[in-house]
Design a protein around this nucleic acid. Structure first.
Lengths: 255, 255
DNA sequence: CGCGACGTTGAGTTCGGTCAATCAGCGTGG
DNA sequence: CCACGCTGATTGACCGAACTCAACGTCGCG
């Protein structure tokens, strides 16, 4: 039980980045029942149209949400790193509408909907934090529409790497940035709406521009400002730190 | 006041399509304070980075959420028709991250966040309905990533028209489908990630295939099944009717 | 009647896709 | 230890869907 609590901690940390929670509320989240599970790479662990009774939290590895066309081409619509809950929305929408896969062997925590609903019902501020968390993901998805719809391959790829760098919390200053990013070029293609071949060429072009080196599942960004400019990247939409903003607790609306 | 209640009714109807609400809860929503406003076409009525203190509900017209690239190209990331609340998420995220514009002269209702939060705090089931409503929009955005990222121009356009037909509630049987869709070809380009010129050619191609006639801001789909097949369209993700599903009231989780 | 917004069409270009071959790394079994 | 086979990365040659540029048509409206 204690081990499970420490596993939930990153998820709680993520929530409290954007929502204020009392000690009781935090405790309630840490005490959520959870079953750890190892997930094999490239195998659906949630399938579309499946009705599920639990949400999951990524503990280790990288999880992706997939869409598919009739001809079988795939499109990643979201990436989820440790601490995130890819299908938290299933609490209010148990019927899955897209597939989830781990891109590498991953560890997840399965948390029953019943438990999540109980906490949300007992602590409205937690329900609010869940809602807000889902909306953060939605803001990212919105940006992906813009990225995939309107930017050329290099800008698009640069933007993706910038987003991941910030989400992996790898951007400390404006100098060199490095982070592990365990994806293949095929995964990058599925995320950017390009083909694997063109991703390869695009990566090489960005390397030639001395903006990004991606090799051995590790990304190195020699010049953060340069890549951010190349990718038209503005981290604002990721709202990595809004805790200093006003409380925004619905609970306090009653006065 | 009475007039305002009737204007909120379509929004309530939308909520109750997917969430169960008691009479009290419905009444509370209908009694939300709201100011009607006329919105001019093609002018931002919400700008990015603006912190807002109210959400809006579309009463008449068509509202779009826009993203933009550095070079000024625009991408529509969501379309909202009457009864929908384009920025309901602002209740938990007052800082806007994209622009909103009406595509035609539109009427909206502005509802103060304070009032929305008060209702959500007093009736947790309403908070839940709001959350679920936002997640429905998110499911659509997810599909748009797939559409824009992986489908060719014709399939993409066909898919968009199918989605709009269903959301306008124009699909009754599998025969001919007609609905008003007040957008220009430039708007369609911004929604599909194509150029206006290519949208024009794509529309003509679909007309030649006898699948879609779009003229005078009115869409006619002679053969619904045909267009749906052409657009790889499956309405499931729109979840237009899930009320018969289990209650899913977080409130009931306490037992 | 003339202006502006929108729609339509043609000609030429280009970015990214397709097809196909080769290479590199790595785990497995002989 | 090495051959084999698999997955992923890389490269070249060619192709085509969608973009660009530019002109012209059409419609509504002041």
């Amino acid at each position: 039980m204690f081990r499970e609590q420490t596993n939930i901690a990153p998820f709680l940390a993520r929530l409290t980045r954007r929502s204020r929670l009392t000690d009781d509320e935090r405790r309630a989240i840490l005490q959520l029942p959870a079953h750890a599970a190892q997930i094999q790479a490239n195998v659906d662990f949630v399938s579309p149209d499946q009705t599920i009774d639990h949400a999951c939290i990524v503990v280790a590895g990288l999880v992706a949400r997939f869409g598919q066309t009739a001809s079988g081409e795939r499109q990643i619509t979201a990436l989820h790193l440790p601490g995130e809950a890819p299908d938290l929305h299933s609490v209010v929408q148990p019927k899955a509408r897209s597939a989830f896969q781990a891109l590498t062997t991953a560890t997840i925590l399965r948390v029953p909907h019943t438990a999540l609903r109980a906490v949300a019902a007992r602590y409205p501020a937690v329900a609010e934090a869940f809602w807000r968390d889902c909306m953060s993901d939605a803001a990212i998805t919105s940006q992906w529409v813009v990225n995939v719809g309107r930017r050329d391959a290099r800008t698009r790829t640069a933007h993706l790497f910038c987003e991941m760098a910030v989400r992996y919390d790898a951007v400390r200053d404006t100098g060199e940035v490095m982070f592990d990013f365990p994806v293949t070029q095929l995964h990058l293609a599925d995320a950017t709406g390009l083909t694997a071949v063109h991703v390869n060429r695009t990566l090489r072009a960005l390397r030639d521009e001395k903006l990004l080196v991606f090799s051995g599942k590790r990304a190195r960004i020699p010049d953060w400002d340069g890549l951010a400019a190349r990718g038209e990247f503005d981290a604002e939409y990721l709202q990595m730190n809004v805790s200093r903003d006003e409380p925004m607790r619905i609970t306090e609306a009653l006065g």
